[in-house]
Simulated scan of single mutants.
Amino acid sequence: MASPSRQSSFHLANQLLDVIRDARMEPGHHLREQQLADLIGVSRTPIRSALELLAERGIVETRKNRGYFVRKPFDSLHRIEIEVPSTADERLYQLLVRDRLDNAVPNSMTQSEIARRYGIDRAALTRTLSRLAEDGLIARNKGHGWTFLPTLDSVVSLKASYQFRLTLEPAGFLLPTFRPDLAAIERMRLQHLYLISHPDIATVSGAQLFETDAAFHEMCAEFCGNAFFVQAVQHQNRLRRLLEFGSYVNSRRVQDWCREHVAIIEAIAAGDFAQASAKMRMHLEHALAAAPSAQENGK
């Protein structure tokens, strides 16, 4: 399990990947630590740690007494993402929610009962319970202990989530503050085309498929220029990770939503935001229609 500082290095490595792709850096480009540190707003030490992670994966290379250099062409990196190891907090969050969905834990528990069951320290437990409460999944009892809220009824919650998203996400494209990042759009399009053309999508990990899906929806929300839209979509993605994760074994549906995402991306790139809104609504309606059968099949 990664320490917070180690986890930060993984996040920073992904930021450096974005820099390489956005700047269209070719093999042999010198990655100067101080320039990167100034660009991202951190010191040279975490930059060095992040570059080492990229070197371990063959994306950059070290040259003695000279530093780090790009090893792979930028256009080969569009589908690469450094997976961030989970923290103790994140692992406990996922375990608690999954156990509740499986009825493996009671509806109401004390902090002591949770700590004993999962072998977690009090500080991590307190942080996790606070986050669960912020996400609307649990509430503190009047006396002591915590109670899981009806949000964690998987079938009901999944339908309610899509109904909420149908109200929210298509509207984002129509805001006067909607400003797309064309470089981000193209990078996302290439990631989706890779999945659409993949000869055996079943061999792609569920984690990668989910992250691609979630990143697309968060990208569209970020273009709105409204922090409340972004926060709402991020919250929904956290719920979806728990409630929908199993659906990513459905190869046909995965490639269908990839095509739907690409259609939305193309509408955004063309500047037709009304069309992008309509296509997002259609996309979410298709997903809502598919959700009940997926649940019945053990999703």
Rank of each mutant, 00 (worst) to 15 (best):
S5C: 07
S5E: 13
S8K: 15
S8E: 14
S9M: 01
L12H: 05
Q15L: 13
D18G: 08
I20H: 03
R24M: 15
E33I: 12
E33R: 14
L39K: 06
I40A: 09
R48C: 10
R63V: 13
G67F: 07
P73R: 11
L77A: 08
R79E: 08
R79P: 00
E81N: 01
V84H: 02
D89C: 12
D89Q: 14
R91A: 15
S108M: 09
Q111W: 04
E113F: 06
Y118H: 09
A123E: 13
L125F: 06
S130G: 15
L137S: 05
F148C: 02
P150H: 09
T151W: 08
D153K: 11
S154I: 14
V155H: 12
G172Q: 03
F173E: 04
A183W: 09
A184C: 11
I185N: 00
L190A: 15
S197T: 10
I201S: 06
F210K: 05
T212D: 04
T212F: 03
E222F: 02
F229S: 03
V233D: 00
Q234A: 00
H235A: 06
R238M: 07
R240H: 10
Y248S: 00
S251A: 15
R252C: 09
R252V: 10
R259I: 02
E260K: 12
A270R: 14
G271W: 12
F273D: 05
F273Y: 15
A276W: 03
S277A: 14
L284M: 05
L288Q: 07
A289G: 07
A290F: 01
A290G: 13
A291L: 11
A294L: 13
Q295H: 14
G298M: 08
